[in-house]
Structure formats: structure tokens, C-alpha cells
Design a binder for these strands. Sequence first.
DNA 1: TTGTATGCGTTATCAC
DNA 2: GTGATAACGCATACAA
Lengths: 344, 344
Amino acid sequence: MVTIKEIADRAGVSRGTVDRVLNNRGKVNPEKEERVRRIAQELGYKPNVAGKGLAARKKHLKLGFICVDDEFAPFFTDVLKGAEKQAEELRQYGVEVLFFITRIEELMDEECLERIVSENAMDGWVINGVLSEHFTRAMKSCGREPVPVIFYNMDEPGADRMAYVGCDYEKSGRLAAGVAALMTDGKARVGVVSVDDGTISSFKARMEGFHMEISERYPEMSVVSQQVMTREKDQFDFFVAVQGMVECHPEINILYLVNPGDYSICQAIRKASTGRDIKIISNDLVEKQRQMVKDGVIAATICQEPEKQGALPLELLFNYLALGMEPMKEYYFTELSIRISQNV
Amino acid sequence: MVTIKEIADRAGVSRGTVDRVLNNRGKVNPEKEERVRRIAQELGYKPNVAGKGLAARKKHLKLGFICVDDEFAPFFTDVLKGAEKQAEELRQYGVEVLFFITRIEELMDEECLERIVSENAMDGWVINGVLSEHFTRAMKSCGREPVPVIFYNMDEPGADRMAYVGCDYEKSGRLAAGVAALMTDGKARVGVVSVDDGTISSFKARMEGFHMEISERYPEMSVVSQQVMTREKDQFDFFVAVQGMVECHPEINILYLVNPGDYSICQAIRKASTGRDIKIISNDLVEKQRQMVKDGVIAATICQEPEKQGALPLELLFNYLALGMEPMKEYYFTELSIRISQNV
DNA sequence: TTGTATGCGTTATCAC
DNA sequence: GTGATAACGCATACAA
């Protein structure tokens, strides 16, 4: 294995010089620089992770992880599980991860984010991309020098973030269409049910994918009706509306629960559709869904690796800040997996 | 973070003594041992992975990976891809991984394995569990002291192996039944197609799972006919037999390709079933299958993480031999994922 | 601009 | 039995 020491010996310089060249710190004699680079190239130098990891402890890195914790968003419980596991891993390298967990309304409040950011000097941040604007403003207003930020779960392509780790929502919608087609011989009559509070553009992207896949591949499929709950609507009214939709459309054979918020709506649907053959397709696999999938109440659900959404951003920040490795790509899309009764 | 040095200081002994106690090497004064253990316990000592990793280079570990490479088993190409990636990773820690790749007939020959084992002294082995008996015998006959062995892809529960990394084949069969049920409203009439050369007990386990799931959950489903190619049969005859099966059974609406060997059989099936509505379910996702799944020729395929089957065994051996961490479990079952056109 | 010394946590080798 | 010490590869503070 080729080490810095070996490169130094061959180039006739000291280890310090090699370090300066390879990590772009300080000035170096151009001639020596050239020589060092050439030798490193020829020998195929790869920095040793264990060595870097050991030395990284002196940096005392601090990373911040901002996340909602909301009974209406249990999905993020799994994200946090992954993040905490990774944080535990990183403690070995002297990295401290601070979690800032609050309800969504608070995070959407300008002051809250500003307080978090101004009171905590971090070497890097991991945030849900929906906070992009607020976060950027908060960072600016408290006058901190910029540090790397990674988005999870939701992206904001224009923003100044190092990478995105999360779902490809359009593809998720396309996959749902494919599952619906499988279950109905390509003759799905679909009812769509979702919450859409405006901040969640995932709904829009998923529906686009769903519709595109239908029009490109399944001429006999169609979306018959939609029930979308907005912020103003009452939970009970919403349930009634969904029941009404099912009853008014006897041709519906697939219900696509994009983001229903409360899964007890499945029971309401069952009541409204006794004697009918309606299959439910949902997204994710939170606690409440698991038993429903097992029992066949939900025929299939499409998952997006929540733990990875929590873990990978921290790993990427560590690799960058401690090991000097830039992320290999900008988009880390999580795998879309189909779960049914037999593989939940 | 608590280090060996800190424990040594508090216990009033040297780092060497702490090392001897915590890693059970050499004799130590029982009184000091007791003290060291207590302090390590109290402080919640967790060995530092980076430190261990760095020191591990002095061990010069050698691991052996035995695998078939066969045009009829392209699945193992992906296993090897995962293994080689992991091997590259481990080189950083001074670990050398030797690959022994041959055709299945050679490996089943006693002499071949004996030669491999007798000529190569390894600190650990990774082998496909189907080689279990042969391997054990080969190890015995050349009189080597036993080293840890990990099985991948196929297990042999009685054998003296440290862990198994691979598919739960019964569950795989159950999942296939669930997918068939989804696609036919629980009314599947199934034709089964497979190769079974006797060494591959995965076929048996999958069929057991398939039948059990049917009898437990889908009263309206049944297996109508099977075509299994044995070693003696001719490839061409086999194709004809499968075509015959499809034509003789107009009620067949699902074909379960458990392990067809050659996927061009899908084309033969298509020819024999023009105008019919037959859906093909297969296992794995080798090169040839990918396009077929994309095009809908194969409606769904069930995957079992081949790369992980190659990578994880090496990682487990390294963790054990270099970091002193025992595997957390005996069975590492790979995830069973359903792939359709939209998520291949 | 360059080299040297030291430390990160663990392990192996000596000398006692 | 035990303790001191030198690696392992890298980063950095300091000296030249």
C-alpha cells in the first residue's frame, strides 16, 4: 500500500510537503509540487481511511441535524433512527451531532430557525429541503460564514446545497402506476387520496409521474377522482368525502393513498366498499401501516429507505469535512421498493 | 471518549495489561484483571474502530473467497462484484483477499478443493454453502487448524460455519405466491419452470414456501403443472416441453420461472402463448433479465441482493479477525425485493 | 517555503 | 506477569 511517507521518500521531500500538495494547503515550490503529483498519480495513491479517521478526532467536528417530529409525520421517526445510528458511529471519530427536533409549525416560523442557527456554530448542517429558503435566510441574517449543507427527503434544486439524499418522487409515482397496472391487468380505475398542505410538493411530483406513466404505457388506465385534504379542511369531513368518492364511483378498483396523513382512513374506506374489489396502494411503511400490509388491507406500499435518508447525509458530511472526500454525486436517490404482505 | 490509556491510568496499570485483559491474551494478575474489567465496564469502554483498523495492518490477514463462474450462473457475477468491491475496501487494512473462481464441475471434484485448501493458508474462508461437505473434508484431509468460515447464497445449518449470508428461500417462494396472487386477484393457475440439478436445494425450499403460502392464504390458487430440467435432459427438449405445458394448459395465467438457467426460454413461452394473458414471475435480475423486465416480458422478478452476498461475508470476517467483533447473528438474510418495469 | 515533532487509539515486541 | 516503546497513516503546530 502506498503511503504519504513513500511518496515523500521517492520525491525527495518531506511528508509535510506532500500533505500540502495533496490537500492544497499552503504554498509549495511548483517544481516539487509537480513531482509529488506525478508520483502520487503513478503509484495510485489512495489516502488511508483508518489513518484519516484517527487524525480526524482532533478536528472536533460538530454537525447539526434539523428534523420535524410530528404525530402526523411518523415517517421521520425512521429517518431519525437512521440519523442517530450514524451519529453514534461518528462519535468514534470525535464528531458531535446535535439534533434539533421540533414540530413543523415551529420550523416554519422564521424566528425558530434563526435562533437555532445563531446559537449553534456548526461545521455542517443536514436539513429537510422544504426548509431551504427559511434556512438560507436564517444563516444570512446571523452572519455566519457558509458551511456545507445537505438536504434530505425533499430537494430544492436551485439552492446552495452540497447534495440531496431522498426519494425521486416522479419515479415513485410512476412505480405506483406500474403496481396498479399489475394488479388490474392494466385496467385500473384509480381514486387518489392525499393530504396536501402546500409545503409538500412531493404530492405534485408523484401525481405527475403517475399520470405520465399512465399516458405513456397504460391506455386503459385512468384516474377517476381525487380527494385532497388541504390545511383548512376538517379531518372528519375529509373521511366523509373519501367515503363519498368511493361510493359515487363504483368503477374504482384502485385507491392510491399518496400521503393520507392518518392511516385509519383505510378502515373508513373498507366500510364504504364492502362487497367491492378495491386494492389500496400507499407510500412508506410506518408503524400503523405495517399490520395493514400484513393483513392485506393495504395491498402494496412503496418505500423510500427512510433510515438511509437520515444516515447518508451525515456520512457524506463526515467524508467531506474529515476525510476530504467530495460527494461522488449531487443526487443520492433512495431505492424505491415494493412491499406486500409477504415482505414487509 | 474512553480509551485504553484512560483505563490504564485509572487502574494504575500499563496499556499493555489493559490490552491483555480486554483481548484475552496472556496471563494477568487476577486482581488487576478484575480492576481493569470493572473500570472498563463502568466507563462503558468501546474500542475505537479507526485505531483498531490502523493497527490491523500488522496482522497481514489473508481471506479466501471461493465462487463458481459459469455462463449458466450469471447470478454469481454480481456476487463477485460485491465481493471485489469489499476486497478493495479491505486492502486499506492490509487484508489480502484471494479469489478462487472455477466452474461448478471442478469445485464438485474433491481434488480441486483439496488443492486450493492445501496450497493456500488463509485466516478465513468464504464459500457457497453447497460446497460445505466437500470443503470440510478437504480442510480435514490436509490437516490445517480450523479457521472461521462463512457461507453465502446457500446454507447448510448443521455445518461448522460462523454465519450465513443469503436468501431465505422459503420466504422467497412465499413472496412469489403473494405476487402471483396480486396479479390475478388470488386466482392464479400456475405453471412452474425450473432447472434442478440436484445440488440446488433452493428450488425445493422455494416450492415449499410457494405451496404453503397458497394453501394458507389463497384457496383459489393452484399449481397446474411443472417442468423441471434435470441434468440429463437436453436444453432443446426442455424448451419444447415448456411450450407443450403452456399449450396443454390453457388455464395457466402465471408462469413461475424459479431458476430457468437460460432466460431465452421467455421468448419460447411468448411464442407458445400468443393471444393469451400469461404473466411471468422470475427470480434475480441478471443482465439478460433486465431488458425483459423493462419491456414487460417478465412481469415481476424477485431479487436477493447478490452484491451483499459477496460483500458482507468478507466484512464479517474482517470484523471478527481484525476488530475482534463477533457477528451479531448467525443468519444474515438478504432483503427480498420485487422489481417491475418501473424500478429495475 | 520546507522539514520535524507530536498525537490520534490500538497492538506487537521487547526487556525486565 | 508487567511496563515501556515503537509502529500503523495522517494532520498539524511549530521550528527553521
